[in-house]
Amino acid sequence: MPTPSASSSRVMIVAFQGWSDAGDATTEVLQHLGGMLDAEVLHVIGAEGYVDFQVHRPKIMFDESGKRVLEWPDTRLFGPVQRPGRASESAGFARIAEPTSPESGTSGDEAAGRPEGTPAPAAATDSDTVRRIDGSPVTDLFLLAGVEPARDWQNFADEIVELVDVWAIDFVIILGSMFSDAPHTRPIVTTVTSENEARRAETGAVRSNYEGPAGISSVIDLALAEAGIETLSLWAQVPHYVHSTPSPKASLALLDKLEELLDIVIPRGELLVQANEWEANINRIAEADEDMSRYIRKLEESRDEELAAETTGDAIALEFEKFLKGGPRFARDLDFPAGSPDRAASPDPSPNANTGEDEDPPAPDQAREDPTA
């Protein structure tokens, strides 16, 4: 059976806080998309049994009636809901990282975190809505947000496979971001990989040859592939020397690639301003630190050399061959010279990947997690 194009598929975008979310780049992408889609909580995978609550603690807060309630670090699926007589209403999910629904497998007012019968907030304006190239709104995009579980990964992955089947998802994109020897002054490098040959031909993705430590994203990717569900893994490289702050520039790079992969238009909102401020702030810090400035110049020289190598005759021939085989959306940023510091590799060397604990950022020469999932 032919593979449906990404633009005509029911697509789920997945991201987890923790190991595979360097610079908060992936969770910011889901947060950004969540504020522009008319969607509700469709299902909740409870944190109990999966999440270490000493690492990701529940939060106590007041609900709309003034009652104190606990909000658990559950994994939530967000998607569109159509109700008779309420087609014009929206239950937007701008708080995607912290939805308030305590129930699993629910939808509607309660799943959206509102008392039953409470009117939904107004829909986003046209200029703040994710749309297709022809201007029509996107109504078949789903988001799965959560924290990386600390234990029982296989059962967790099985729940996600079942979720994809129940909601008839055609295609899954797994987001990741990793700390890398990448200069903040150059465009953020993204990599796209897939185990599915048809998807590789359509998108210009490559098949990963990585072997080494893996995170929950890899476990989910393999579980979905085994179940016959097509996936793409999209990763961004984040400068490791600015690990203590969010990286809006990396989030923008992921959104750029999502637009290309899905043939949709995603408004950038304030992310462009935030990315410019982020880069300007790092420049100011570097100007006052000669060692940091020298190190950044070395990274810039290395990156520029790689870009120059891509313009050689062999590189151009390879790119043209990829274009002929994979169509116009081939990825120029997937082939790195052997030994390159930015060659796709593992984003985190933590030996405690299965604990769910946040680790200090890796040194530039340390192994990093599988960027294929």
Rank of each mutant, 00 (worst) to 15 (best):
10 R>F: 05
19 W>G: 04
22 A>M: 09
22 A>C: 13
26 T>F: 08
29 V>Y: 10
30 L>Q: 04
30 L>W: 02
31 Q>E: 15
36 M>G: 09
39 A>F: 03
44 V>C: 06
54 Q>W: 01
60 I>D: 09
78 F>V: 07
80 P>E: 08
81 V>Q: 13
81 V>I: 15
90 S>H: 00
92 G>T: 12
94 A>Q: 08
102 P>Y: 03
115 P>L: 13
117 G>V: 12
119 P>N: 03
123 A>N: 07
124 A>V: 10
128 D>Y: 06
128 D>W: 10
129 T>D: 11
138 V>R: 03
147 V>W: 02
150 A>V: 02
153 W>I: 06
160 I>E: 04
166 V>Y: 05
168 A>R: 14
173 I>M: 08
176 G>T: 06
196 N>S: 13
220 I>P: 11
223 A>P: 00
224 L>G: 05
225 A>L: 05
231 T>Y: 09
236 A>W: 09
243 H>R: 05
256 D>P: 00
264 I>E: 10
268 R>T: 08
268 R>L: 06
272 L>D: 13
277 E>I: 14
281 N>D: 14
281 N>V: 03
282 I>Q: 08
286 A>Q: 02
288 A>K: 13
296 I>Q: 05
297 R>C: 04
308 A>L: 07
313 G>F: 10
329 R>L: 08
330 F>E: 01
348 D>M: 09
348 D>K: 09
348 D>T: 10
353 A>Q: 04
354 N>D: 14
354 N>S: 11
357 E>N: 01
358 D>M: 10
361 P>N: 06
364 P>C: 00
367 A>M: 14
369 E>D: 04
